[in-house]
Amino acid sequence: MSGVTRITGRACPLGLANVDTDMIIAADHLKTTVRTGLGQYAFEGLRAAGSVLDDPAYAGAPILIAGANFGCGSSREHAVWAMMDRGFSAVIAPGYSDIFAGNAFKNGLVAVELPQAAIDQLMVGAPDSEIMVDLDSMTVKRGNLSFDFTLDPFRRQCLIEGLDEIAITLRDDPAIAAYEAKAPALGWSMGSAFAV
């Protein structure tokens, strides 16, 4: 995963609240064994109904602006893969489902949380004005609008440096082994027979 510090570009003003993972990528497209190629199916249902997502003014926009509770529903990481494959590098919304936020972070999709009032201001404005999401200064800027956001420091560092979280955790291997030696739930051996 490559690191990212700043994302600059147009922001597609979707604005919708409770965009669930089925809306981001329908179950029909989960039957894949790879992470790529899902962009064509991203937001399929919304786009079929006519959506700002297909407005040529926002073609290739790297930022999506959405409403509250974005990414609720399923744990499918395909939602994040599909969004990134469609070209999004950041989302700005008042809040995310916990699993979606985790998935986004793991893949380097920057999920920024701003209050609804800030979202409302970013939703209006010329399609050709650019937004900047800056992980250095932890601000979202457009023209003379500027909003501060917060991000878990570990996540921020991983995003900026593009770190592999598994490798970081494996540095704690001795602690994991020590835990296993005394874990209460592992203190007996699990039967291996299945009821058949």
């Binding site: 699993i99 985790g102 793991k106």
Partner: peptide, 20 residues
């Protein structure tokens, strides 16, 4: 709790998750 695929990989490799 439910986890995403990257976390599935993390658990397979480390039997742990980094959580708040």
């Amino acid at each position: 709790f439910g986890i995403g695929t990257s976390e599935v990989e993390h658990v397979l490799a480390t039997q742990t998750l980094r959580l708040t």
